[in-house]
Design a protein around this nucleic acid. Structure first.
Lengths: 126, 126
DNA sequence: ACTACTGTATTACGACATCAATACAGTCTC
DNA sequence: GAGACTGTATTGATGTCGTAATACAGTAGT
């Protein structure tokens, strides 16, 4: 599932790992209850320190994607699709608010932002 | 114009200063060609090191908001409203792309994002 | 219970960002 | 051109983040 990771990237190693796993889980490639590779195993495979993998797993746990059980392993969390949808809606709102805050600081108006959204996403998307 | 700045805030001092000035300029409170307070003057007023103010001013200069002239002072830049609008449009696009990137990493779909945008901004805004 | 695997916690180190201190160089007014 | 103001450049102390090293604690199959 994993091939490599780039130490020279500005995105931290643990974030790269977490990102990959996040989309793997979100896309259904990794099914609920499925075990993730062990911390040491993945660390060896990526030639990275185990603690770095731990940090990635911990982030995913905080976000509700996985569950870490000491001595047993790390597993994709079983969640009702409904509550997962709600969670993603919450994250989406957080992202939008963050963008609005930054826009305010830069003096970018909501109208300009909406124009940019229409441009980047496409107007008639549904 | 300036009252205070919070050293305990997670946002760096120079960023706080730059933010305040940015919206002051963007809102027209500070007119083009108007002088900003001198580095030392503002530093003394905010009880901050002059170099911190310099960093804020330099950021604003990189963004095209102000112009620093050695020996003379720092002034709000005179720009054609048109090109300023284009600049803000560029920044708006950058903000949107950044949000889309993060959404992708979190496994949040564009649909969910659009729903959040409608919620936060309001659907029929124009 | 032993053994070999899991995750956990603590500590340390390097890189980088933030902020400060100080000396330097240009501009303006008189 | 003297003096008092501007911004500029260099250097260093401090804190935080990312990563690693190492020892600890729980789980599971035998």
């Amino acid at each position: 599932m994993f091939d490599q990771v780039d130490p020279r990237s500005p995105t931290p190693l643990y974030a790269q790992i977490a990102n990959r796993l996040r989309i793997a889980i979100a896309s259904g490639e990794l099914r609920p209850t499925a075990p993730l590779p062990s911390v040491r195993q993945l660390a060896a495979q990526l030639r990275v320190n185990p603690a770095t993998v731990v940090q990635a797993y911990r982030d995913l746990e905080d976000e509700g994607f996985v569950e870490m059980r000491q001595g047993a392993g790390t597993f994709v969390r079983e969640v009702a699709p409904e509550s997962r949808g709600r969670e993603r809606a919450r994250q989406a709102s957080a992202l939008v608010r963050k963008m609005l805050t930054e826009a305010g600081r830069l003096g970018v108006s909501i109208q300009e932002l909406q124009a940019a959204i229409a441009e980047e996403i496409g107007v008639g998307t549904s």
